[in-house]
Design a protein around this nucleic acid. Structure first.
Length: 887
RNA sequence: GGGCAGUUAGCUCAGUGGUAGAGCGGCUCGUUUACACCGAGUUGGUCGGGGGUUCGAAUCCCUCACUGCCCACCA
């Protein structure tokens, strides 16, 4: 308990409490504590790249995880939120190589060689890796840092080898010469998922070739890649195509290169479509996936005309050899033109596969690689379609299903140095696969490393001590929730599910929450290169971590993208300030109090706010149960600002500043009840400020440590108010209605002030002619909310004609203006009011007059319309009477 | 080419059959002691177009348009 400062200074408060939590080991997940009474809740962080720095995407993702983890703790669960980083093979090697080149240390990785470069990357990792984990602390992430893992930790690496060997022995991993996606920039094979399609403005080139058996007869072929002509080994047409069917089995003369005049056979293949280009396809089995398959079907030779870096080799012919592939394309077109073979060139848009990392077009290339036939596909498929594992939003299940249905073998080897080395050794024609090097002389290990995702897919259990299934793994696996971006649903989520079934015999997590994508105001993804991605640490420094968290949560709905707007963060900051000041107001009235709420002394306002609190408790819990974080945040915002501050707090002033001293204690007790619930309800969203205020108000002092005595982190999650509670305190719907009616009187008074230009700060006399007796407290509240001096409650008030009047649910409210009475003006004002009422009344009456309506509408709706009509009609009658009284 | 989202106030978005909403912005007024990072009031919408179902449609159905994302071996 200490005095709340005038303004909230997030930086100091955040550092103080984060240190406190760490010192008290509040984030620790201990399997020994798990029991039936204390169930486990676990979540593994999607490991960011070691090279990563915090982005708004991470803020969104990790705030959600933190909310889930903190709420689970408050619900009395033993929580493990396990953090860590991913070695991110290709990305990290690129970053470090680039750094070394920039500093002039090397020109090329070969300058260092494999071992030295890997050592350098490790050095770099120790120094800069994990910056992002430090940054997550600034956000308030309650990860169990003592369990931080890295995908290249020694025991993690053993897990990777173990599953490789296992899969190899099961016959699911094989080595083969296949067409793969080759990245000519990174000089490695890639998986299908690492290739992104991009639309290109290219050209379609039409060139002709002569049929050898029928001199003078030419075929025209359309291609986007004329530079691959030297690699052609056939020409294909559809056998059902009447234009060309007779040519199958004959040959054409190869147009390029000039020195290779070996004829190309014309063959029939169903893959060829009639209506694309000319219906004649050049077949280049070594440089196109589809052509490769045609080649296989027809046993065509393959001519690889390119080096691995995309430069044409000597098989491309003297004219093209040595040229980079796109330069070669230009040259090939020139050559075709010179030969008179080029018929035309049309602009053409097509999709080209790009290397996701290096952002260059990939080259289909035949090479020796390791492949994996995915394991446990059926189980992974079933668990989602059956609904045992739930996706949020649900529609991702369909995407997942579709991918799993058409799944191809996974190319898992990479020609890189940074990563898990493939656990296979060769000696002559002998091959050995094992976790350790084979004994004996002359063995050499496969030089390739594994795809990064081949280690990431083990994350949920390899981080928990697998293959030892006791301890952590026994208690915390399967994890409860996974929170990640939909962009890695195939890369990571799907594969983790398979791995979970394959090695744990069980799903790895029960629920998957896919986060929104954050875009800028122009709808673009946030990215470094566009420089449209604000640094979350700057935002935290400027607005406070809670503000960033709350602003982000409030604006990120389940299931759709969000547009980033700093205004949202600002709103978060304003909200924290509001929370701070409202709490300060409580403290200014009194220090901590002893004792309970006295039911008999509850006012209609007290009952109203308790019922509104109940509504908020239900709304927030339900929303969180359904992973609707923005709805939960909005409910909190609305409750606290629009209900607690705007109305309830103002009514308490009747007790605190008015002449009803007797109610002061009870009002404090109600405030403490509401604030105590509110702070706990807010804690997962706003961990720092709630912890600070919890202590400042002294709410921690009378609770034992495991109920939030030392920290709000372990305070009980507030349950909705039950029926016993409501009965005990006499909370009924009619109390709520009465309070609402009272607040409506206030709204009417404000409208009157507006109409007669009386500012809200000016104290004026109001007279209420009550329709029923008004309790003393409510009169006092009205006096304060109306800013009336005095507020006369006069049952038989006879207002001078022309006195501004409003009809309220509690009676007629008068604004007697001495010397300012203007009968004509008041008559006009009433006429306007009447017109409005008549319009509403008319609308309802039109509906009710419709025979169809009355006959077909449900009774409930009909009833509701009749009530509405009656209400408007009554109002209309009263207004008309007042209008008539003015003469 | 296939699939999935979305289109509501100037902006960002709620609203799944019954009186169109919130926040921000704009405008007006206000330093009444929790808060000007505030309070009070006010201004903004033929709910993308067209058709249909219904007593009644932002909401259900059909269709079109536009935007975004995912999947796909027409070179």
């Amino acid at each position: 308990m200490s005095e709340i400062a005038k303004t909230y200074e997030p930086a100091a408060v955040e550092a103080k409490w984060y240190d406190f939590w760490l010192q008290h080991e509040c984030f620790k997940g201990d399997p020994a504590r798990v029991s039936e009474q204390r169930p486990a809740y676990s979540i593994v962080i999607p490991p960011p790249n070691v090279t990563g720095v915090l982005t708004l995407g991470h803020v969104l993702n990790n705030t959600i995880q933190d909310i889930l983890a903190r709420r689970a703790r408050m619900l009395g669960k033993e929580v493990l939120w396990l953090p860590g980083t991913d070695h991110a093979g290709i990305a990290t090697q690129n970053v470090v190589e680039k750094t070394l080149r920039k500093s002039g240390e090397i020109k090329h990785r070969d300058d260092l060689g494999r071992e030295a470069l890997v050592a350098k990357i490790w050095e770099w990792k120790e120094k800069y890796g994990g910056i992002i984990l430090q940054q997550l602390r600034a956000l308030g992430a309650s990860c169990d840092w003592s369990r931080t893992r890295f995908t290249m930790d020694e025991d993690y690496s053993r897990c990777v080898s173990r599953v490789f060997v296992d899969l190899y022995q099961k016959g699911l991993i094989y080595r083969g010469k296949r067409m793969v996606n080759w990245c000519p920039a990174s000089l490695t094979a890639l998986s299908d998922e690492e290739v992104v399609m991009k639309e290109q403005n290219g050209a379609l080139y039409y060139f002709k070739v002569e049929v050898i058996e029928e001199p003078g007869r030419f075929l025209t072929i359309a291609t986007t890649r004329p530079e691959t002509i030297p690699g052609d080994t056939a020409v294909a047409v559809n056998p059902k195509d009447p234009r060309y069917a007779d040519l199958i089995g004959k040959h054409v003369r190869r147009p390029l290169p000039l020195e290779n005049q070996a004829p190309l056979p014309i063959l029939g293949d169903d893959h060829v479509t009639f209506d694309f280009g000319t219906g004649v396809l050049k077949v280049t089995p070594a440089h196109d996936k589809a052509d490769y398959e045609i080649g296989q079907r027809h046993k065509l030779p393959m001519i690889d005309i390119m080096h691995s870096n995309g430069v044409m080799n000597e098989l491309a012919g003297a004219d093209l050899a040595g040229l980079e592939r796109f330069a070669a394309r230009k040259r090939a077109v020139e050559l075709l033109t010179e030969l008179g073979a080029l018929e035309k060139e049309e602009p053409y848009k097509n999709n080209v596969g790009y290397s996701e990392r290096a952002d260059v077009p990939i080259e289909p290339r035949l090479s020796e690689q390791w492949f994996l036939k995915y394991p446990s596909v059926e189980a992974a498929h079933q668990v989602v379609t059956s609904g045992e594992m739930k996706f949020y939003p649900e529609r991702w299940a369909k995407v997942y299903d579709h991918w799993l249905t058409g799944i191809q073998d996974w190319c898992i080897s990479r020609q890189l140095w940074w990563g898990h080395r493939i656990p296979v050794w060769y000696r002559g024609s002998e091959v050995y696969c094992g976790m350790e090097a084979p004994s004996g002389e002359g063995w050499s290990q496969d030089p390739d490393v594994l795809d990064t995702w081949f280690s990431s897919w083990l994350w949920p259990f390899a981080t928990m001590g697998w293959p030892d299934k006791t301890g952590t793994l026994a208690k915390f696996y399967p994890t409860t929730d996974l929170v990640t971006g939909p962009d890695i649903i195939f890369f990571w989520v799907a594969r983790m599910i398979m791995a979970g079934f394959e090695w744990m015999g069980e799903l790895p997590f029960r629920n998957v929450y896919f986060t929104s994508l954050i875009r800028d105001k122009q709808g673009r993804k946030l990215s470094k290169s566009l420089n449209n991605s604000p640094d979350p640490l700057d935002l935290i420094a400027q607005y406070g971590a809670d503000a960033v968290r709350f602003g982000t949560m409030r604006s990120a709905p389940l299931g759709s993208d969000v547009t980033y707007d700093e205004k949202n963060i600002e709103l978060g900051r304003n909200f924290c300030t509001k929370l701070w000041n409202a709490t300060r107001f409580r403290q200014m009235q009194s220090g901590p109090i002893e004792g309970e709420i006295e039911p008999k002394l509850l006012t209609s306002d007290d009952k109203w706010i308790l019922l509104r609190l109940d509504g908020a408790l239900r709304e927030v819990s339900t929303a969180l149960d359904e992973y609707r974080f923005s709805d939960a945040a909005n409910a909190l915002y609305r409750f606290f600002w629009s209900e607690f501050c705007d109305w309830y707090l103002e009514t308490t002033k009747a007790a605190f500043f008015g002449d009803l001293e007797a109610r002061k204690f009870n009002t404090l007790a109600v405030m403490d009840f509401v604030l105590g619930h509110t702070l706990r309800l807010f804690h997962p969203f706003l961990p720092f400020i709630t912890e600070e205020l919890w202590h400042d108000l002294g709410y921690n002092d009378d609770l034992p440590a495991d109920q939030g005595g030392e920290t709000i982190m372990f305070a009980r999650w507030p349950a909705p108010l039950d029926d016993d509670f409501k009965a005990h305190y006499g909370l009924t719907a009619s109390d709520e209605q009465f309070a609402n009616a009272k607040y409506e009187v206030v709204n009417h008074s404000r409208a009157l002030r507006r109409d007669f230009n009386i500012t809200s700060s000016k104290r004026v006399r109001f007279v209420l002619k009550p329709s029923s007796e008004l309790p003393e407290h409510d009169a006092a509240v009205l006096r304060i909310l109306l800013n009336a001096e005095p507020l006369d409650i006069v049952a038989d008030f006879a207002a001078p004609p022309g006195t501004p009047t409003a009809l309220t649910p509690l009676g007629e409210l008068y604004l007697p203006l001495e010397g300012l009475i203007d009968v004509a003006a008041e008559r006009e004002r009433l006429a306007k009011e009447i017109a409005k009422v008549e319009s509403e009344l008319g609308k309802v009456r039109v509906k009710l007059a419709d025979e169809n309506f009355a006959a077909k509408v449900p009774a409930k709706v009909l009833d509701e319309h009749r009530q509405r009509e009656a209400a408007w009609a009554e109002k209309h009658a009263q207004l008309a009477k007042m209008h008539a009284a003015l003469g």
